[in-house]
């Protein structure tokens, strides 16, 4: 788990493939984990009693979070991560197709570090991914 920099939470397989394609295209070699629903990512960070699993706690530098997820939705994942002292400093970038103002509002209220709408244009999509990763992995200086 030590080499995991990016946690991708995305249920749409095609979006996952496009994200990975963009990482590859930009020559980004960071390790990543992919979770296909909200429950998977919660189980990764928390045990059934709701305590943080410290073995998994070499925190990633970025969680890329979709909002519309099966089982536990992105908003709930965000709330769980941001309300625990051990996980709240992990940067979470919401990456969603929703441009609804209430989603933006709610995300920021819960503590999202950034909010991006997935572009329809594939060139822009790849460029967004490249810039997100560059910013949060190379430019931004995290806690710890």
């Amino acid at each position: 788990m030590d080499n995991i920099d990016i946690v991708i939470v995305e249920d749409n397989y095609h979006d996952v493939e496009m994200i990975l394609d963009a990482l590859n295209e930009s020559g980004i070699k960071s390790g990543f984990l992919i979770f296909r629903d909200g429950a998977e990512v919660v189980q990764h960070f928390f045990d059934p009693a709701g305590r943080v699993i410290s073995g998994n706690l070499r925190p990633p530098k970025l969680i890329l979070l979709d909002l519309k997820l099966p089982k536990i939705n992105g908003m709930e994942v965000l709330q769980l991560l941001k309300s625990d002292d051990k996980t709240k400093y992990i940067p979470v970038v919401v990456f969603t197709s929703s441009n609804e103002s209430r989603d933006r509002m709610e995300s920021y209220k819960l503590g999202a570090n950034s909010y991006l709408v997935k572009p329809l244009d594939a060139d822009q999509f790849a460029e967004h991914i490249r810039q997100i990763i560059n910013y949060w992995l190379n430019l931004n200086i995290n806690v710890d």
Binding site: H14, K68, S97, S98, K118, L120, D121, A122, F125
Partner: peptide, 21 residues
């Protein structure tokens, strides 16, 4: 309209993404 904005866009994104690839 919420699901239109989400669900109709997703396949379009895939079409454009794969065409680009």
């Amino acid at each position: 309209s919420y699901s239109v904005s989400h669900d109709l866009r997703a396949p379009l994104r895939a079409i454009d993404g794969y065409s680009r690839m």
